[in-house]
């Protein structure tokens, strides 16, 4: 027996199952990062000195732009599927993936720079929370890239057999990807600008 509402939304909730699932998952992610932001605040209040503009702001601004761009390519890839344009989807999804790679490379430059100047997590609570927050966010980026890469490559076969379900999947993957972008939107000022 088939499980209902895997493709079509249930009328009263307006959701198909996976969309309800990803939103709930994101709710839990909000609490995860919420706890880390709480830690940030308490550590900052307790600190004698908190660095200002000590991190590489231009590089991080570039990275913000990269991530925002990847968000629009992601939503465009979904819109392309809505227009039934699979080729366009592949282009946009490929771009999203590459922008993810780009983000990680820039982040990698930052990390290696920190390590080479001896700025390791155990040097101060600021560096500790910086590495924890960005590291955890980086893991989320990697997770999203695995999903996006799968839907760009092997997972896209589903377009031929179940186009609606595939479109749903891209929407769900998109919701996750935008959330990762959203987290960065808050991480960026909190860690780099304030």
């Amino acid at each position: 027996m088939e499980i209902p509402y895997t493709i079509t939304p249930r009328p009263d909730t307006g959701l198909f199952n996976a969309k309800a699932g990803i939103w709930l998952f994101l709710a839990s992610e909000v609490m995860l990062f919420g706890a880390l932001f709480t830690s940030y605040i308490l550590l900052r209040i307790g600190a004698d000195h908190w660095p200002h503009h000590e991190l590489d702001v231009p590089l991080a601004t570039l990275n913000t732009a990269v991530l925002i761009t990847s968000s629009i390519t992601m939503v465009m890839s979904w819109a392309s599927l809505m227009e039934k344009n699979f080729k366009k989807y592949r282009v946009y999804m490929g771009l999203t993936f590459l922008l993810g790679v780009c983000f990680l490379i820039i982040k990698g430059f930052e990390y290696t720079h920190h390590f080479s100047t001896g700025e390791t997590p155990n040097k101060s609570t600021f560096l500790a929370i910086y590495f924890t927050l960005t590291g955890l966010h980086g893991l989320h980026v990697i997770g999203g890239m695995i999903v996006n890469g799968y839907f760009w490559g092997p997972g896209s076969k589903m377009w031929k057999t179940q186009p609606e379900r595939f479109t749903n999947r891209i929407e769900v993957a998109g919701l996750y990807w935008h959330f990762v972008d959203l987290v960065w939107i808050f991480l960026f000022p909190v860690l780099y600008l304030l």
Partner: peptide, 29 residues
């Protein structure tokens, strides 16, 4: 800075994540 971040965040949530056109169930959660 937090105000700007909130504006940016709500733009992403409302439009990229189409929260603006969802039904009650998501809003409640």
């Amino acid at each position: 800075a937090l105000f700007v971040a909130c504006v940016k965040g709500s733009l992403v949530a409302s439009y990229f994540m189409h929260l603006i056109s969802e039904k009650k169930a998501i809003y409640m959660a």
